[in-house]
Amino acid sequence: MKTLAILTRNPLSLIGLILVAAVVLSALLADFITPFPAHVGSVVDFTNFNKPPQWPNIFGTDLVGRDLFTRVIYAYRISLILGVVVLALAVPVGVAIGLLAGYLGGWTEYLLMRLTDVFLSIPPLVLAMSMMGLLAPTLTNGMIAVTVMWWPWYTRLVYNIARSEKEEGYVLAAEVIGASKTHIMFREILPNCIPSIVTKMTLDFGFVILIASSLSFLGLGVQPPTPDLGSMVAEGAKYLPDSWWLTVFPGVAILVAVFGFNLIGDALREILGVDQ
């Protein structure tokens, strides 16, 4: 609660909170706030196709007459699910490997960190594209591809902290009294990694959405008729500048989500005193 109070006193972090709250609430309440929920699927209405923004289609309609506002809101739900699942899988794996390498040292450190370096040496989007080239372009496979490219960043972060913390007095005291290595890693060192991990997760949430949208933009992510921000931008780009709404509104939706999470992440970094 104290951290939330501090966030609300900072104008930029308050803007971030508002943006993220709007994104999350709109995704959760999509069934109630969207005017045409049926337009999420393979609905065709050629009497209203490709119309500019007007009531009741405040974002306009797409090339087959579906309400763009409805599809953008439901696309937020897909993006948030992907972000939650990717971080829920990548963070524990990366943190565990980083703790093992940073505290145990020796051959364990060498093998785990060289493996991490291999993954870090490949540009994230290229690695995800390579994975998706081998897998069918589905939401589940998209989550797998992004997860595979995300865990090494947490390994590197926690490794650096653990390697520094293992020389601190509280760790040496735990070793003297006979505490197990597992206890020291997960009960002594890990709590001191939490501020950095939480800050990075907040910043990464927006980037996960951006990477997932990039894959969809390239045709390697969520496939139609399921609404996805990246695929909507890609489809609308073919008809610029005449049908500008097809690209502008999904693109702004991506911007709002990424910008909101970045503002909160930057504020948390200052509040928690994290140096990344």
Rank of each mutant, 00 (worst) to 15 (best):
M1Q: 13
L7G: 11
L7W: 09
L7P: 11
L7D: 11
P11F: 14
S13L: 12
L17E: 13
L17Q: 12
L17K: 11
A27I: 01
A27W: 01
A30D: 11
P35M: 02
F36D: 06
F36V: 04
P37K: 02
S42D: 15
D45S: 14
N57R: 00
G60H: 02
T61C: 03
V64I: 15
V72R: 01
S79E: 08
L82C: 08
V85R: 09
L87G: 02
A90N: 06
A90G: 06
I97K: 05
G98D: 04
L99E: 06
L111S: 11
L111P: 02
M113N: 04
M113Q: 06
L120I: 00
L125F: 11
L125R: 07
V126K: 08
S130T: 13
M131A: 12
L134K: 10
P137E: 05
L139P: 00
L139D: 00
G142R: 05
M149S: 13
T155N: 09
Y159D: 05
A162H: 06
A162P: 04
A162Y: 03
E168K: 15
G169C: 12
Y170G: 14
G178L: 13
S180Q: 10
M185A: 07
R187T: 07
L190D: 08
P191H: 07
S196P: 04
F205G: 08
V208M: 01
I209E: 03
S213Q: 03
L220S: 09
G221C: 09
Q223V: 05
P224T: 04
P225T: 04
D228A: 09
S231I: 05
E235K: 11
K238N: 14
Y239C: 09
Y239R: 13
L240Y: 09
W244R: 13
P250C: 01
G251L: 02
G251R: 02
A253Y: 02
I254D: 06
L255E: 10
V258I: 10
G260D: 10
F261S: 07
N262T: 11
L268A: 10
R269S: 11
D275W: 01
D275R: 14
